[in-house]
Nucleic acid binder design. Structure first.
Lengths: 134, 134
DNA sequence: ACTGAGTAGTCAGGTTGTCTGACTAATATG
DNA sequence: CATATTAGTCAGACAACCTGACTACTCAGT
């Protein structure tokens, strides 16, 4: 299970690098994948990535410097800023998602469609008892 | 999938800590889990943990200082040393394995025995196409 | 309206895990 | 027996992450 999930993440990351994001580390990519289309607060990013807001701040700094995200004031809360992906980051995200879809297609080819459907359902069930945040 | 496999590793690690290994980091534990009963060379540990021998050397240093492993000369090769678990480390390993078995039992209770068998088989199949080392 | 509690974000300092590069000692090969 | 290879270590650097402390802002209760 570890091997398979790691393989999936590695393929998504490699696709992102191939799409031009060669200066993004895996950790930065993992955080960037948590950003909503309209932007997300740093604390929310930190919670989703299971890390502290200090770490998230630092990673957002790096991503901002590299031109993948921008910080804009949150109109709903003067304390907060929204982290938003730039057009460049969007392109990278599309490429990564396409690679994940391709990989899942290969899995289905290897194990068969019924088994793949059952896997998806089993994982949904396991998440109920293994996800400490949901 | 990521969530479930992470949950399993976390439970094994927590059990190890509860069994008295409170001074072992998750990374050290991950390396220690790769040691064979008769001992294993540092380069082999590095390969299994997908890391460099420099990192493995450093982790073995820490584990040796904490009394979990010992280095003995390899009788078959004068250059090599075998990293072996001490009695203390063995106890911890037993506790961790017991916790993994307990967790898998809970999974089976939640999703049912047939689904659990199919999951195991599916994972074995996926490993064929996702494990870059096997 | 104003004070006090809570929240968003950042800064500072330190630890861990990891890497590349360079080195020694022992083995294997021609 | 000279050379190439392999096991292991040392040194220096960097990325990721943590705890603690701080500022700026919001909001609920008086």
């Amino acid at each position: 299970m570890y091997v398979a999930s790691r393989s999936l993440e590695a393929r998504a990351y490699d696709a992102a690098v191939a799409a031009g994001a060669s200066d993004v580390t895996p950790t930065q990519a993992r955080l960037m994948a948590q950003i909503d289309p309209d932007g997300t607060r740093v604390v929310t990013l930190a919670a989703r990535a299971r890390t502290t807001k200090q770490s998230a701040t630092s990673l957002v700094d790096q991503l901002e410097r590299a031109g993948y995200v921008e910080r804009v004031p949150d109109p709903a809360d003067g304390r907060a800023k929204l982290v938003r992906m730039t057009a460049r980051a969007h392109e990278v995200g599309v490429a990564a998602n396409a690679e994940v879809a391709r990989a899942l297609g290969e899995w289905e080819e290897h194990v068969g469609a019924p088994r793949m459907r059952e896997l998806e359902e089993t994982m949904r069930m396991l998440r109920e008892i293994t996800d400490p945040w949901a």
